[in-house]
Amino acid sequence: MASDLEDIKRRLVVAHKRGGRCVYDETAKSELVELCLQPGASVSRLARECDINANQVSRWLREHAQRRKGALIARSAPVTSPFVAVPVLPTRTVKRVNDAVAMSLQARLPNGVTVELRGADLRELGEVIQALGRLPCSVSTTI
């Protein structure tokens, strides 16, 4: 580990800005952060051995944690949509009204609301679904 730390220390500072601030190598920074995350590692000791302020290393650790948290959220967060998949089940009884098929539609929404339309033909159901799709969705119903 001592040789790893010496290698990181050697590669860490790549330049200095006008005000004296250091420009750090991203790879070496990441390696130092990984060393700090090891069980039993002392952030202040590792920072001191690399000639860096411990507060700077602590900031890198916070940024690293935020990036990891953001990456986990991005991977696990479902795509939010105001639309909900509605399974279409075959109806048991089909009635013909003036050569049109009378259909029934039942939708159970995640908020517990059940919508039922009975005795409508395909055209009427299509119009209702299109009208519902054009309605604005309030912020309270979006995820």
Rank of each mutant, 00 (worst) to 15 (best):
S81W: 02
N111T: 04
P87Q: 04
R68Y: 02
A100M: 14
Q106N: 07
L105N: 02
V97P: 07
K95R: 14
A74V: 08
P110K: 10
G112E: 06
V94C: 02
V86M: 15
P78W: 13
T114V: 13
R92C: 08
N98W: 08
P87C: 04
V79S: 13
R67C: 00
S81I: 07
P82N: 06
R75N: 11
P110D: 06
P82W: 04
L105E: 09
V101R: 01
V94I: 07
T114D: 02
P110W: 08
R75I: 03
L109E: 06
A102S: 15
G70L: 03
P90K: 11
P87T: 06
V115W: 01
S76P: 04
P90I: 05
A85I: 09
T93C: 08
A77F: 06
I73D: 04
V115Y: 00
K69P: 01
R92G: 11
V79G: 06
R108P: 00
V97A: 12
A85E: 12
V113F: 04
T114F: 02
R67V: 00
V88P: 12
G112K: 10
V101S: 01
T91H: 07
N111R: 04
V115R: 00
G70E: 09
I73R: 08
V79I: 14
P82D: 07
V94M: 02
A107Q: 07
R67Y: 00
K69D: 11
A74E: 14
A107S: 07
K69F: 00
A77Q: 06
V97T: 14
R96S: 11
A102I: 11
F83V: 02
A102L: 05
R108H: 12
I73L: 05
N111Y: 03
V84A: 12
P90D: 06
A107C: 10
G70C: 03
V86K: 11
A107I: 07
A107R: 00
R68Q: 11
L109N: 10
R96P: 06
